[in-house]
Design a protein around this nucleic acid. Sequence first.
DNA 1: TTCGCTGTTGTACGAATGTAAAACAAATCT
DNA 2: AGATTTGTTTTACATTCGTACAACAGCGAA
Lengths: 220, 220
Amino acid sequence: MTRRAYSRLSQDRRRTDLLEATLACVADLGLDRAGARQIAERAGVSAGLIRHYFPSKDEMVRAAYAYLMGQMTAAAEDSVAGGELSPEAALAEVIAANFAAPSLSGVKVSLWATFVGRVRVDPAYADIHREGYREFLDLLEARIHPVLVAQGCPADPARCKHLAIALNGLIDGLWIEGSLDHGLYDERRLPGIALAAAEGILRLPDTTLTRHLAREDERS
Amino acid sequence: MTRRAYSRLSQDRRRTDLLEATLACVADLGLDRAGARQIAERAGVSAGLIRHYFPSKDEMVRAAYAYLMGQMTAAAEDSVAGGELSPEAALAEVIAANFAAPSLSGVKVSLWATFVGRVRVDPAYADIHREGYREFLDLLEARIHPVLVAQGCPADPARCKHLAIALNGLIDGLWIEGSLDHGLYDERRLPGIALAAAEGILRLPDTTLTRHLAREDERS
DNA sequence: TTCGCTGTTGTACGAATGTAAAACAAATCT
DNA sequence: AGATTTGTTTTACATTCGTACAACAGCGAA
């Protein structure tokens, strides 16, 4: 029997290949059917190699979750990085970014849900989840505060935190149902629905956030 | 070898025992480790019996998801069943019920997330999810409309639907993070946060919903 | 009490699983 | 060019999985 030809990749490259193959398998096979052999095949690698990069398959899956959350929070932070926008426009952008590609994605929400299902079981998943949630909460709070100040609304820390919690809930819930694409309504309306609801939650005058919606469309 | 003693149960009883054992195993082992043998043991039954009630283990898991969603939507509908409340109080109750036991539950959110992770993979899960989501959306819309009318707000069908979508998103997102109990804030504040945010989304005067909060506490 | 039905158990089996470790080869160093 | 290192493949193994099926036993009917 002749051996398969292969090439040696850098440790980081091979590792991320394995992580992405893991996510791909979990997304369209489910956690139970995402076996070591199938992940390895998707990564273009033989099954035994997994144990050269991870102490066990379970730890590789955990690492894949951490990798996914790192990508998602990095994307959220980048969504307002370079711009010199008004506080209102910046907040609108952070919110609306969740309802367009690549955030609005059936694959992403499938992975997110699958892993959240393990948070209660496995403390490692709980830690990763908590960290990602806290980061997004902080990001939101930092974007909310200047808007409240500019609009002359009360902006004490307790109120900001509560508003961030509520806004994060709104975004999460709409993102999940929107990404699942169940066909119960037109997903293109989600940015408008989300921004109008956010205006209400923050007690801002109408169109404070929604008037920044058109610019989002032009960009695409 | 002596055989195990057993008793014959009614078909319905045995079936729901199996479904509840399935949910219990999925909740605290995860979908991949919830094997037929472990589920059977939890149900106080031998593994072979599964195939007497379900064509396969996978179909039993699907049936367990349908069973769970049936329980949850039934609970949501019951939460406003008998009362002769004002429209505002009824809406507040529907919302607040999601942030107290038994709805606010780590087990429930784990199961919910685990199954949502399969929606994209398996059309049967997609159907069950869509149906449950649509039912809750309709329930919310039916509770929102009379409030808007009573408060003299615009209440055309399109606006009601958008508001129901936003409110559902808010509830879902807060319910998930609250149930996961990550310790980033005090979950007892969730009903207040949710009701205040709902007031904002619906553009209602302050305390229209939150003034019904105290009554919720007294009841417990 | 005995019979008959069928819900239930126990066992067996092939396939798939995660993992260990030996054999190999690709890249690097000398 | 040859030696060395180590990333990678391959084979092997114990375990677990879902399922099939024959044997058994609880329970109502006669």
